[in-house]
Design a protein around this nucleic acid. Structure first.
Lengths: 202, 202
DNA sequence: CCTCCATCGGCACGCATCGTGCCGATGGAA
DNA sequence: TTCCATCGGCACGATGCGTGCCGATGGAGG
């Protein structure tokens, strides 16, 4: 996406990064509306070719722009119990996902993906699955630590956790706030936690 | 009788219903691509005014078209236990949601909704919340029947159930099949069921 | 320091869709 | 039979898409 090792990019890489920034700026200001190749080119003072030379479509540009700011924002350190760690990460990524740069770009990608199954697969693989996987890693460690019951289908649990949050973010109008995250974790721990229900640590 | 085979130029309500059908046909054949006011007008042999006189935008048409075939497909009868009932309904609506007429139209609405928060609210209220509510009703009855533990936040549980399925349908590339529904219900019953295998209630 | 040419900005094209305006035809109700 | 709301058809300006062509520019190779 940045440069090719065979052909030396002269002004290429700098332009590429600038275009990503312009795309994010545009998204932060105008939202999903006004996100178009023409608009990015106009705003950057750039010919449309300079964009099409790098990305085959607006959707591809949006995906790269998203990668540019959404650098694996989920970083599960084992700081507290599994519940506290999940809670912190969910709240953190929820804040990022609903704030100007990322939110509108994510929406735009979702919209474009509805028309293009290849793009949808890319979106799923590059963002949704990534988030699920890091969540899965964290709860796998929790299972090994005895915090979760042994016979749990952790992959599906990770999907339910992340899917519910994405559902709220991208399809519903409800906010992803503390009560939502707490409710979700209540259900998760009630289903798979080894501590007794009614006993809510952390 | 307006059965003249030449040009039965219908008016009013007849035209409205015909336009909804044409929209669904178009979606079933061409999918999300090719869903436009122009395309519907062309296909129906109709002036664009005839469409704009009825719906303010393509998105509104799509919402009505969706209502036209998605007539509260969730009908929870209390046939078996809560798990069996949920399972049946989830599988049934999943089949409907992924088949030609409804699937593409739903995708189109999702895409349009990303650009219009009013539309997104309408979509949420008219479809997502409706499904959640009928699910909530069923599990509320289950709670009264003693199948679910008393202190459960049922509203949130209904959202998690429906949200996970919608996440799979509309954002991921995984199919909503029996194993997905079973996995989801496993988690739900493990969290809130009163007869939990391997666990000692109370 | 100079030459070369890949990349650059700018402009224009053909196509498509949007939402609107206008016109003459049509057909259901009075 | 008359009337007029609705209709189909056509055209418009605006916008975005993806591409083609131009002359300018500036970094790398000599």
């Amino acid at each position: 996406m940045t440069d090719t090792p065979a052909t030396p990019r002269r002004r290429g890489a700098a332009r590429t990064e600038e275009l990503l920034r312009v795309t994010l700026d545009l998204a932060a200001e105008a939202g999903y509306a006004g996100l178009s190749v023409e608009a990015v080119a106009r705003r950057a003072g750039v010919g449309k070719h300079t964009i099409y030379r790098r990305w085959p479509s607006m959707a591809a540009l949006l995906l790269d722009a998203l990668s540019f700011v959404w650098v694996s924002d989920l970083d599960y350190r084992d700081a507290g119990g599994v519940r506290a760690d999940l809670r912190e990460q969910f709240l953190r990524s929820s804040r990022a996902l609903s704030s100007p740069p990322i939110g509108p770009v994510y929406r735009a990608v979702i919209a474009e993906a509805q028309a293009d199954s290849t793009l949808r697969a890319t979106l799923h693989e590059r963002f949704l699955v990534t988030v699920e996987r890091s969540t899965l890693d964290r709860i796998t460690r929790a299972q090994r630590a005895g915090e979760l019951v042994a016979e749990t289908n952790l992959e599906f649990a990770a999907e339910v956790l992340c899917g519910t949050l994405y559902y709220r973010h991208l399809l519903s109008t409800r906010p992803v706030d503390e009560s939502a995250v707490d409710g979700l974790l209540d259900m998760f721990m009630a289903a798979y936690g080894t501590s007794r229900p009614g006993d809510v640590p952390d």
